[in-house]
Amino acid sequence: MTQEVNIPLTDLRRSQPRFSGFEAGHRACLGCGEALAARLVTESAGPDVMYANATGCLEVFTTAWPDSAWRVPWMHSLFANAAAIGAGMEAAMKAQGKSTRVIAMGGDGGTFDIGFQALSGMLERGHNVLYVCFDNEAYMNTGIQRSSSTPHAAATTTSPAGRESMGKRHMKKDIVSIVAAHHIPYAATASVAYPSDIHKKVRRALAIDGPTFLHIHTPCPLGWGHDGALTIEIARLAVQTGLFPVIELERGGVAGAMPIRKLRPVTDYLGLQSRFRHLFADSSRAKEELEHLQALADHNIELYGLRGEEKIDALDSEGADTVRRGGMRWA
């Protein structure tokens, strides 16, 4: 069936019943989790916000001059300084007596690695900045190199699997705990598979006076080796297996966790991605690594109490992102 619309699409686009801070025509890959997360964040934050964006995919695919996908005041400076730029913006707003909020954002490289010091400084100084990390677990913009966020056993171009290697040897850095250890008022993780949860957490963070942190898990079809149509499915499986716990921390203490309704084995998640393909080889090492990853997931489940009580959580529509006729998820 071909669609017929009475009003031109450009007019319709202009009159969407949500805040459009992030526009179409950006050059992200098909099914990009980061593009989606960025759109959701701007949408949730509203118009009175300025953004500091670290170098990375998001910055590159949104602002190929003279085009920009942003409809919010936005600035990219460098790879390592998004948190410091955000701090400067916030100081300026304070000095000018303005209420415009500041969101700094970066990928996992710009947050876990090169921008880590600036992030720590911003948090310690108590700037009224929400820092959002879009975590796709490797340096994707430069060609899928491992970062300190790359999960254990994932193959990247600098942690390839081979006769002597099962992918990345080290563990994924527990950034949210490290951030929370700054005793900031609010730090949380979220997944692009749960947009209502992102929406809620962005708003919660922006309502707080002080530094806040949101870590969003965003699959990268190119780097993880999956079809773009599977981005949400894979993000959801990361949560449902326990490999990516969705939690909230206040002043350093765990204040909430999204329960897993139906626990899934890690192989359901790993098997969909070519970065973990070597784990399905018929070898004892591969089997051991699978067990290792399952153990890591089990550890998270135990640590954060993620095992959902089926009865109680059955109606937890807020966290589970279930839908209602007529789009009531956003109510």
């Binding site: 619309v5 699409l9 319709l12 686009r13 969407q16 019943p17 459009s20 992030f22 526009e23 179409a24 950006h26 992200a28 099914g31 990009c32 989790g33 593009a35 989606l36 759109r39 959701l40 947009p195 981005t231 949400i232 839908v323 209602r324 006729r325 007529g326 789009g327 998820r329 956003w330």
Partner: peptide, 18 residues
């Protein structure tokens, strides 16, 4: 269902709500 899922999840802002 008019559930907004396509509108909410499109990374390319290519689904518009009427």
């Amino acid at each position: 269902l008019a559930c907004d899922n396509c509108w909410t999840l499109c990374p390319d802002v290519a689904v518009l709500k009427t």
